[in-house]
Amino acid sequence: MFLTFLLQLKNSIMLGCQYSLIAIGFTLFFGILNVVVFCHGDFYIFATFAGATFLLIFLNLLPGIVSVILIAVALFIAMVLTGFLGVVVEKVTIKPFRKSNPIIPILSTLSAGTIIEQLLKIFYPAGSNPQIFPNIIPAGGINIGEFLFGTNEIVILLFTIVIFIFMYFLIKKTKIGSNIVAISQDFEAASMVGINVDRYVSITFFIGASLAAIAGFMNGIYYTVFRYDMGAMAGIKGFSASVVGGLGSVFGAVIGGFLMAFVETFAAAYIPGGSAIRDVFSFVVVLLFLIFRPSGILGEKIIDKV
């Protein structure tokens, strides 16, 4: 009994790592431009495809290289590609609509996401079938009693913690971070004091999309099977996590991501018949939050401005 609990806890932490990485992207974008980028989940699945492709290429070209280096290089390439994808998507589908009705960027980013998804489906070899992520991390791990902590799980957990610390320093201690915070506090005032707003918006999109790329790569390593249409659900979960945590707050996004993962995993495990409708529970949590605390756990209270 206790062992299953521990197992579920481990599963939910693994899922929470992914959700919070996606949610951080949502919260960064919302902070800087007041938009919700509905194709963020498609950045995530794009990165899974990119990572898998490059891993396969490397494995075929250079057999016998230490797997750590391979993973690092493939992850790096996936992050850079996804980051640039994020920048392009911002230029095409968000920048033209900065001053228009907020319905418009919702629709344009949704369609951008659909385009990415369909391109993956049509142009990736056998893209409409589930793909298998090259299994490169050695099996095994650390046994604590009966409880097994797999190597891939340790890698994912440590890496996520590193990324969280990195994000903290990026936002709190560097010039890039302070400029991003300045823009998110007041877009026009930031451009008045000489911050190149467009450039920092691009940088933010690069960072956010590459965080989604890390999550996508982890998805590949952990679940090993992926499909072109997994992005939409991941995106909606990540968005829900950032809303639950409080849109605009990076720390809130992390909390929200883990909360969503806990609800989903434990509802699936402990409620009879729950595994088929596990998503229903997390969406109900989101609905409750939206109704009773729309600003989220850590968000500032939303005040209507005229």
């Binding site: 909606i236 829900s240 939206l290």
Partner: peptide
């Protein structure tokens, strides 16, 4: 706006 779109998507 965005929260509302999330409500409808969740629904």
């Amino acid at each position: 706006e965005y929260h509302l779109s999330l409500v409808t998507i969740a629904f």
